[in-house]
Design a protein around this nucleic acid. Structure first.
Lengths: 135, 135
DNA sequence: CATACTGTAATAAATTATGTTACAAATTTA
DNA sequence: TAAATTTGTAACATAATTTATTACAGTATG
């Protein structure tokens, strides 16, 4: 998963923000996203690993935010779900004997690095609380 | 093709910039990218459709820039190869009976729209000539 | 007229993303 | 303590997307 990860995580977290006192089951969440509950649990596992969600097994179990939505920014979520953004690389090793082939990925990297900074500064300004308040 | 399109197009265009007076064959270009020549020709077809490249069939044919590299920005290339950037959507139709499901894609869209603007303004400041000069 | 290209279609292979099934372990509730 | 419900996770299956290959008609060059 790469494309949907951020969107799914934001969706999950928005739901958790809307019900801050409940443990929401993967089945309930999956019903809103229209996604398989196992995939929801996998995303939750990732969010747990990053300490913004906690979960409870067993009957009436589920997931719940482990910190206030006001203290979580979209930037953090972005960083938990994307290595970094970019417009792609040549997948194959470009020809190292060609001056262009030799440096293309490095130069693309530099470009994408700057792109990431801009995006991060945008996302840093939006808290999960802000985002959730739009619903 | 979505991931590699921008990177491949930039690679092609950088080569064309380096040899502004020659028609470069898809085979030559493919040798630098390490990609199948047919895929190179497909990307070139796209660049031709956007009028920044011209090509010649037959012996000693190939592709060539149709305008000065100084007058092509990375933003244009971005727009020729990406619909728009974003961090993905829930692929399935989210549940319209859930207030979050109902609006999630709209709200993500708004977020991504702003992201695109930032990226476009970055890319607009870099010409193909600038980019190619790094090699 | 032989050669070396493009353009494009059709198809295949590889990769990645998404979905499903299954089940052990945990927790609640009766 | 037993039944019910839920997580966590692995293994596997399917679907979608990307990348590669083959093939060949058409076109320009020399």
């Amino acid at each position: 998963m790469l494309s949907g990860k951020f969107a799914i995580s934001v969706h999950i977290l928005t739901l958790l923000t809307k019900f801050p006192n409940d443990y929401l089951s993967s089945e309930f969440i999956a019903g809103s996203i229209n996604l398989n509950p196992v995939l929801v649990r996998k995303e939750i596992a990732n969010l747990k690993a990053h300490n913004i969600v906690e979960s409870k097994e067993g009957k009436n179990g589920g997931a719940k935010l482990s910190k206030a939505a006001a203290n979580i920014t979209l930037k953090e979520i972005f960083e938990m779900t994307f290595e970094n953004i970019g417009l792609g690389y040549a997948k194959n090793q470009p020809n190292p004997d060609c001056p262009v082939g030799k440096k293309i990925n490095q130069n693309l990297d530099d470009l994408y690095k700057e792109m990431n900074q801009k995006i991060c500064s945008q996302l840093e300004g939006i808290s999960l609380e802000d985002f959730s308040a739009q619903f």
